[in-house]
Amino acid sequence: MLMEKKLYTVIVYSENIAGMLNQVTAEFTRRQMNIETLNVSSSNIEGVHRYTISLWTTEWLIQRVTKRLEKKVDILRAYYFTDNEIFMQEVALYKLSTPRLLENKQISKIIRHNNARVIEINSAYTVVEKTGKTDAVLSLYKEFAAEQCVLQFVKSGRVAIVRDASVNLSENLFDEDSIRSKVRG
């Protein structure tokens, strides 16, 4: 089980200091582990940043990498999860040709069926936004592409929250006993 490759999501809380991103990614680079998605932003706590990283790897490796991340002086916590332990979403933007949209009614149907949202429209292009799981945003892209209307496409890395009702990852980040628990085996 430990050696089976799965998609893992790593959540890291760190101080907001220049160079932290390098320190976080270096732990993966060192083992030539390829990061699939990376999202970094401020957290709900002032001065603390939150990283959400997804990658394909084994539990054996991700356990060790997470421990090493947490050991770094300016990192508060690092956790890893499988997809069934988290709610995750990605945001995608699709820039479509407005003339194609107007002449092909199928495109509007695709937007509605996929619960996507039009956020900008002008005579040249239309910007559609879709939030969802990786498969959903990618399959919407494929549907648009089949209609040959896509001018640009971009999707974000994932953001994730934990399913377990009793867990609040950012709670007690600075509580000394709680920090100690991160160092215990």
Binding site: S14, V73, D74, I75, L76, F174, I179, R180, V183
Partner: peptide, 14 residues
């Protein structure tokens, strides 16, 4: 340093 625990507290059970 708030993010650094140099001396983990011994776990008496262990």
């Amino acid at each position: 340093v708030r993010s650094y625990v140099p001396y983990p507290k011994p776990d008496l059970q262990c």
